[in-house]
Structure formats: C-alpha cells, structure tokens
Amino acid sequence: RPLVPAGIQVEQLVQYGRHPHQGWFNQWSEEDARMVRWACERMQLGDILAQSASSLSGGQAQRVWLAMVLAQDADIILLDEPTSALDIGHQTEVMEAIHQITAEGKTVLIVIHDLATAARYCDELIAIGEGKIQAMGPAREVVTKPLIDRLYQTDVDILHAPGDGAPIIVPRRRPQAFAMQRQA
C-alpha cells in the first residue's frame, strides 16, 4: 500500500491528481475543482473527504487512489495489482469501481494475478509466460485448463460461476508432490 504523507486529508490527496495540469501560468482552476468533485463522486468518497488519508481501510484507500487517478483525466489508466492485500469485500469494492470507470469510456489496463477476479471483471485477458504472450482474448477463451496448467506448472479444474459463467480456477490437491519435494 502506498505511503501517505502524515496529516493529509482524502480530498487533498485526490487533488494531487490535478498536478499534471498545473504550471506557472496555469494554477488551480474551476475545471480542476470540477474534476476532483467528479472523481470523488465516482469513487463514492463524499463521507470521508475530510478524513485523514492514513486512517482509511484498505478498500477505502484504494478508492481514494483511484479517484486521484481519475482526477488526472487520462484516457488510459494503468493499474498494478489494485486488489492485492485486500479482503474479498474490499477486492469486490475496488473492482466494481474500476468497472464503473471503464463503463464511462476509460481504458484500464490491469496487472493482476488473481485469475478468478480477472476472469470475472476484465473484458480481455492477456496471459504472459516465459516473457511472451501465451494467449489473448475474452476470459472464457483464455482461461483454459491446458494454459493454466502449463503457465503455473499445476493441475487445475475450470468451473463456471453461477449467473455469469465466469471461469473459476480450482487447483487440484497434489499431496504426493509435496511429500516428494520434502523427502528430496
């Protein structure tokens, strides 16, 4: 989790997203204020704007960082493991917020190792292994047993989630493999 300067409030942190639009002759504007308000609304931060950013839960903090990124108003957003170290409730909260960003026309590229989350929330997946692209396309085409087994040197079952049919990766037990490694 990124470090936050002591004493900084949530709204101030989101305002940092407008820094690239500032300069000697281009100081804080009504457009900057509008973009910060818009980003805070999108990430549902209204009730915590005056709160110290260092006091937030993991999910709240991620929403604040996403608001800061949104305030930049970039067409393409790059995120590295936005749900790492979050519990399942906060993971869902953050991925729903990211999904909302894409619904509003932004392109979001995410590096994520949680295959179930990627399969459920991402429109397109790119599987990378051995330094090159191994597969690319919709989750239902990319998340296959042969690919996952090969990329992760494992043995999995691929199930389909009720409702939306998103692929769910379930590792098979291999107790003999662990016992053999311990004996070696």
Rank of each mutant, 00 (worst) to 15 (best):
Q12S: 15
D73L: 10
A67F: 11
F25L: 08
R182I: 13
Y16H: 13
P167F: 08
L147F: 02
P82S: 02
D87E: 07
C122P: 09
R182S: 09
I48H: 04
N26M: 11
Q44R: 11
S84A: 10
L151E: 08
A116T: 05
E93K: 06
V69F: 11
M35S: 07
G7D: 01
V143P: 08
K132S: 12
L86Q: 04
D75F: 11
E31K: 15
D87H: 08
H90P: 07
M136S: 15
L78V: 10
D164I: 10
V10A: 14
Q51R: 14
M43T: 01
I148K: 04
V14D: 06
D73I: 03
R63Q: 03
Q62K: 14
C40I: 06
D73R: 15
M136T: 09
L3W: 08
L79P: 00
G163W: 05
L56E: 01
G58E: 04
H113E: 04
P82W: 11
Q153S: 04
Y16K: 13
D73Y: 10
I76P: 12
A97K: 04
V142R: 02
Y121R: 03
Q91R: 14
R173T: 10
P20T: 00
D123G: 13
T107F: 12
A85H: 15
V143Q: 08
S57H: 11
L70P: 00
R182Y: 08
G131Y: 09
Q134T: 06
S84Y: 11
A71N: 02
V170A: 15
Q183P: 03
R34A: 12
M95I: 02
Q22W: 06
E141S: 07
D75E: 14
I112N: 07
L66N: 01
M43C: 09
G17S: 04
D73C: 12
P138I: 02
A118C: 06
P20F: 08
A139K: 09
A161M: 12
D149E: 04
Q51S: 13
Y152N: 03
I76A: 06
